[in-house]
């Protein structure tokens, strides 16, 4: 690494710039769009010079969408709140259930443990639509359709396998001897889990929680089918911008900007845990 030539530096710089451009440009463009009206967005050729307007954001925040066909009521802020609540609650439930289970799968070898772990993972293979139709009927019969609890439960299909498999790997990476040493020094199994295993796997748990949150946040199909308008998250709520008089690109863009903010902030915050997670390797010498 110390002997990188100038040419190598230039090539590397170019490559990084291209990658950043490729991934960041759409977001950058959406960010610009969110300050424009439909007219300036749709003009040909497109231009980055325009008169910025906050009308899209005001429309979203006040819930009044002005279209050519008149004013529409939209519940974007409610959707955003639903997203936040559903994702947070799902990840919380997923962590409470998944972390102890991951520990059990990592440390205890019991009959069928691999089969059970794989079955849980296989929920991720099945197309959601496959389970949705029967699930809808069941949910209606037992009164879980269109409830937060019902949605959080279904979200476990997304969240739980993810947390289980990521966190299990982190637990397996902790040398068992560290836990043995703590147990033989006079601590119970439960105390060892809390005081040794959990803190050491902390970065992994944070990473899994973050990833699970993003997956839950981005989910579309479960909420579309199982919830009505007042329980739907932003991913479904954004459909409201496709109106009879056309697609409201400006509001869609502003909606996207608002809806990526929480995950973006969370990712920035959790980044240090992810870095710590990498330095956990120091345990292994």
């Amino acid at each position: 690494m110390e002997h990188t030539s100038t040419l190598e530096k230039i090539l590397r710089g170019t490559a990084i710039t291209l990658v950043i451009l490729f991934f960041m440009f759409p977001i950058f463009w959406i960010f610009l769009m969110s300050f424009q009206t439909n007219e300036t967005i749709l003009r040909v050729p497109p231009s980055i010079v325009f008169e910025p307007t906050l009308s899209n954001y005001t429309a979203l925040i006040t819930g009044k969408l002005d279209t050519a066909a008149g004013t529409l009521e939209i519940s974007f802020m409610k959707n955003l709140w639903n997203s936040l609540f559903l994702s947070t609650a799902s990840v919380a439930v997923g962590l409470v259930l998944g972390v102890p289970a991951a520990y059990a799968f990592a440390r205890l070898k019991f009959r069928g443990s691999e089969d059970i772990a794989f079955t849980l993972l296989s929920f991720r293979f099945a197309p959601p639509l496959l389970v949705l139709l029967p699930l809808t009927i069941y949910f209606q019969q037992i009164g879980l359709a269109d409830t937060y609890i019902g949605l959080i439960w279904v979200y476990q299909l997304i969240v739980l396998p993810l947390i289980l498999w990521i966190v299990r790997g982190y637990f397996e990476d902790i040398p068992a001897d560290v836990e043995y040493a703590y147990r033989i020094a006079g601590h119970s199994w439960g105390a060892t889990f809390r005081k040794i295993a959990l803190p050491l796997a902390g970065p992994g748990i944070a990473a899994a929680g973050l990833l699970a949150f993003i997956f839950a946040w981005n989910n579309f199909i479960f909420a579309l089918v199982l919830a009505s308008a007042d329980k739907q998250p932003v991913t479904v709520g954004a459909l409201a911008f496709v109106t009879a008089s056309g697609i409201q690109y400006g509001q869609v863009a502003a909606g996207i900007v608002l809806s990526i903010l929480p995950t973006f902030a969370l990712a920035l915050y959790a980044q240090r845990y992810l870095v710590e997670g990498l330095s956990l390797g120091a345990v292994k010498g």
Partner: peptide, 10 residues
Amino acid sequence: MAFEGYSLYP
């Protein structure tokens, strides 16, 4: 007990 491998509280 003393351990062969990495057993110190990190």
